[in-house]
Amino acid sequence: MTRAALLVCPASGKGRAARMAGTVAARLRTAVDSLDLHVASSAEGTSALARRAVEDGVDVLVVLGGDGGAHLGVQACAGTSTALAVVPAGTGNDLATALGTLSVDDVVGALCDGSRRALDLGRVGNGTWFATVLCAGFDSAVNERANGMRWPAGPRRYDLAILAELAALRPEPLVVETEDSTLELDALLVAVGNTTSYGGGIPVCPDADPADGLFDVTVVTAAPRRTLLRMLPTLRTGRHVEHPAVRTLRAKSVRVAGPGWVGYADGERVHGLPLEVSCRSGALTAVGR
């Protein structure tokens, strides 16, 4: 018998999640034995409902929302026997993409097949978990700008935020420490990837594998603005890692430090630097292919 809970984040996708909720619930009921529906009006309420569902022992927590809602679901499910499923209804939907669940039909198919994946998670020193990418520098500034934009919807919002932030771009001293090495350099951004992508499908860490027990780390060093403009088109293909201004590392644990930078994880603000993160193998059971 499969017990599931559907957690609806009604504000996701400018109300798209709320509009989809009835249809999604009906589809999910064809694949599970029981389904409880939970709707919260705030991030705090969503977090509390997610934790309550997991404490009640549901087999699967299904989040209907964007990466923000999925991030809250990760906090509740990490290190437990409850599997996380994500039905995408937000702006970026990077975790759903990584799980291969691009629609409710994908989730239903995986539930019917019993498809489960053990995923690594990142653990920040303050106790926050993340499933996709932790970033700081230029990319976290892009996140802050994109989160404050009302238009446009979808990944295009991140593209416009990138162009806007380029005007204020300047390198800052950055220290990246791993278990094997230390980088001290002037940099524009650092991304610690458990999965490949952030910002609605930008493969900032194109070779990251969420089941190998390691992070992929991408650092963009100081470079002229015109060089970065030429590099931008390669971000969507992952070819930016071939550029001389880009350094890549693989590590089990990472400490990043830089003045004035703020860390974002799964698109959510975490804390100012310095930050210490570690890769926890198999910390999350996920529904996906």
Rank of each mutant, 00 (worst) to 15 (best):
L188G: 04
R116P: 10
D209N: 12
T132W: 08
V190L: 00
C205Q: 00
P206W: 03
L99D: 00
T218K: 02
G125C: 11
A208S: 06
G199V: 06
V104A: 13
R157M: 09
L95E: 01
G122P: 09
T91G: 00
V176W: 05
N194A: 04
D209E: 10
G154E: 03
E144G: 10
V192N: 01
G100Q: 08
A168I: 08
T178Y: 07
R116I: 12
A208I: 06
D106P: 10
S197C: 15
L214I: 01
A89R: 01
A131V: 11
V217Y: 06
G154R: 09
D120K: 03
P152W: 11
T91M: 02
A168E: 13
G154V: 11
A161P: 10
G109D: 11
D186R: 14
V87M: 03
S181F: 12
E172N: 05
L185F: 08
T91H: 04
I202L: 14
A110P: 12
Y158G: 01
D139R: 10
T195N: 07
N147R: 14
A208E: 05
G154C: 00
D186L: 11
N93A: 01
G148M: 06
T101R: 08
T101F: 10
E179S: 07
F138P: 06
T178G: 01
V87A: 04
P155E: 02
P203A: 01
S140R: 12
R117H: 07
T218H: 07
T91P: 06
G109T: 13
A191L: 03
L99I: 03
L95D: 04
D209V: 14
A136V: 10
P203Q: 03
D212Q: 05
D209P: 00
D159R: 15
R157N: 05
P152Q: 07
T97I: 00
A167T: 15
P206H: 02
W151K: 11
A187E: 01
G213K: 03
V124Y: 12
A161Y: 11
V176Q: 05
G100M: 07
R123K: 14
E172F: 15
E184L: 09
E144H: 15
V107D: 04
W151Q: 09
F138S: 01
G213W: 07
G100P: 08
D94R: 04
V190Q: 01
N126A: 12
